[in-house]
């Protein structure tokens, strides 16, 4: 891999029909870096995450993971990506174990049984491993969703507003889990409306407005107030 970034986005553009959703998106992330993306509703944040997760095709530009083009190696590169969203992607009529078994088989995880016990331990859900997911609280579902996302050892984690609908206790738990993930050198891209969480957890941040990157900063150089001021300034408030 050499010195090339783990995730490289160059001149990325996405149109849906005749409407331009994203343009001129450029950034790169090295292994272990955490990037937060802020922006108002309709700025194109979720579309950007869909592009990064290979679920939707880009219109023009370049998207590379570990030097490999996502356009040319889509299926193969999906193994390197894990997504945690406010949607859990879980099946309510299956147990926690069955959900993880299903996703593990889809990703071709080796020693799946042991791996399931490892991740379930990591998110602290051992006590309800064989309970139906539809009986879980929102916080428990989100923790299981994290287990699902890291099950296949992805190098890049994409987080799409993971705090939505969580109470304070669940947010703290999620932060602990995300911090734990980062210590294992996972590269993380997080979309959030929560400035404080975004600043605390990231190394760098982007502010996306009307489908363009309007500001890029280093998280340690900003406190919450300064970030809010900058954000308002960019939105013309």
């Amino acid at each position: 891999m050499g010195n090339q970034p783990l995730l490289a986005v160059k001149e990325l553009k996405k149109d849906i029909g005749k409407k331009n959703i994203l343009s001129d998106i450029n950034f790169s992330l090295n292994q272990g870096e955490v990037l937060s993306i802020f922006g108002p509703n309709g700025a194109g944040k979720t579309t950007l995450l869909k592009l990064l997760s290979t679920v939707t095709d880009l219109t023009t530009g370049e998207l590379k993971i570990a030097g490999e083009s996502v356009v040319e190696n889509t299926i193969h590169l999906r193994k390197d990506i894990g997504v945690i969203s406010h949607h859990t992607f879980l099946y309510g009529d299956l147990t926690a174990y069955e959900n993880l078994k299903f996703y593990g088989e889809m990703y071709g995880v080796n020693n799946l049984k042991d791996r399931i016990f490892d991740v379930i331990d990591e998110v602290g859900l051992n006590f309800c491993l064989h309970d139906l997911v539809r009986t879980f609280s929102r916080g428990m579902k989100q923790r299981l969703s994290i287990a699902r996302a890291i099950l296949h050892f992805p190098e890049i984690l994409l987080l799409d507003e993971p705090y939505t609908g969580l109470d304070q206790h669940a947010i703290e738990m999620l932060n602990r889990v995300i911090n734990g993930l980062n210590t294992t050198q996972r590269t993380i891209v997080m979309i959030t409306h929560n400035f404080q969480q975004g600043l605390n957890l990231s190394d760098r941040f982007l502010i996306l407005v009307n489908g363009r990157v309007r500001f890029e900063g280093v998280s340690n150089d900003f406190n919450l107030l300064e970030l809010q001021e900058k954000y308002k300034e960019l939105l013309g408030e």
Binding site: T54, H76, R78, I81, S85, H87, F89, D93, M106, K141
Partner: peptide, 17 residues
């Protein structure tokens, strides 16, 4: 079942044809 919890998106993320 795929629409609940947006699981279809989860399937589309899998390294599967």
């Amino acid at each position: 079942a795929e629409k609940q919890n947006n699981s279809i998106h989860g399937l589309m993320l899998c390294p599967a044809d």
